[in-house]
């Protein structure tokens, strides 16, 4: 599997270094068109769009195709951002993966878990990366943004942020930026029970980034992705400063808190379990988003 940074940026010397082509699936829909404009204005190189039965049209000068096969053949792009309604996600993702897409950013919320599982299986067999579903996407600040995040919170730098939640990713990146900690990459993995890229996978994707100065993990109740990540960090002896934030300490049990995946069953998925594992891995956990940069500075032995 090619690394995410390699897919997103390419190598220095490539004609399209830091300007990799991205295809938007669902480009003519309300959501897809809004975010295509936002991504273009951020500097993302949107090379094509796909909407069935709208092939041959253009959207703001971007050619639209009926299928991913045609769009990939015409552009050679390896990245796709999916903006179709949840019930059409599986079809769109299969279309993209079968056409050779290597990085699929899955924005829709409310995708049935079975559909996600089938997409994840196909991606694994193709050696492709799926981010999401129910993700804000991925951003390399001041280089490329593939997703729905607002640009304001992010600034280029050397901290990686990986998050289950969208708005908390913005909130915490904003706090980091204000404290002088720019980001080299931030990845939203999504708030669903099954993620194309798990927290541990996201960690593996960013941990060897050249110049990486710190890692921020934004988790929430539900599942055991945070526990697995804490274990992985211990196992790999990752030596960069890392801090975490966990949302949902005050949430009642067995209630789904907005995200399909944010639910505590018995003790499985509880905040206590996650905080406990991070403590074991010597990763401080902030009690408020604003505390994240303070803890990170402490870990880096810097003063804010």
């Amino acid at each position: 599997m090619t690394g995410i940074l390699e897919i997103l940026r390419g190598s220095e010397g490539d004609p399209d270094y830091n300007n990799k082509g991205v295809i938007v699936q669902g480009i003519t829909g309300a959501y897809g068109s809004l975010h295509t404009r936002n991504m273009v204005s951020y500097g993302t190189n949107i090379v094509a769009g796909v909407t069935p039965n709208k092939g041959g049209q253009t959207f703001e000068g971007i050619p639209v195709y009926d299928t991913m096969q045609e769009a990939v053949e015409a552009t050679g792009a390896a990245i796709s951002a999916v903006f179709v309604p949840a019930r059409f996600f599986k079809g769109a993702a299969f279309d993209a993966l079968n056409a050779g897409i290597k990085l699929l950013v899955a924005i829709p919320e409310h995708v049935p878990v079975r559909d996600t599982m089938e997409v994840v299986r196909l991606a694994e067999s193709k050696g492709a990366i799926v981010i999401g579903p129910n993700t804000p996407g991925v951003i390399i600040p001041q280089v490329t943004k593939i997703g729905i995040m607002p640009p304001m919170p992010f600034k280029a730098g050397n901290v990686a942020v990986i998050s289950k939640s969208g708005t908390l990713l913005y909130e915490i990146s904003d706090a980091l930026t204000s404290a002088g900690f720019g980001q080299c990459i931030t990845i939203g993995i999504g708030g669903d029970p099954i993620n194309g890229t798990k927290l541990v996978d996201a960690f593996e994707m960013v941990k060897d980034t050249p110049g990486l100065e710190g890692l921020v993990i934004v988790g929430e109740i539900g599942g055991d992705a945070e526990e697995m990540l804490a274990q992985r960090i211990m196992d790999t002896g990752f030596s960069r400063p890392a801090v975490a934030y966990i949302a949902g300490r005050a949430a009642p049990k067995e209630k789904r808190m907005g995200h399909a995946g944010a639910i505590v069953m018995g003790t499985y998925g509880s905040a206590e379990s996650k905080v406990g594992m991070f403590a074991k891995a010597n990763i401080p956990v902030a009690t408020r988003p604003a505390e994240v940069p303070v803890l990170l500075a402490g870990k880096m032995k810097k003063s804010l």
Binding site: K164, T167, L168, L169, V218, E220, A247, A250, M257, G258
Partner: peptide
């Protein structure tokens, strides 16, 4: 955002 509201809670 679910995360932000949980955090506020």
């Amino acid at each position: 955002g679910a995360g932000l509201v949980m955090s506020t809670l």
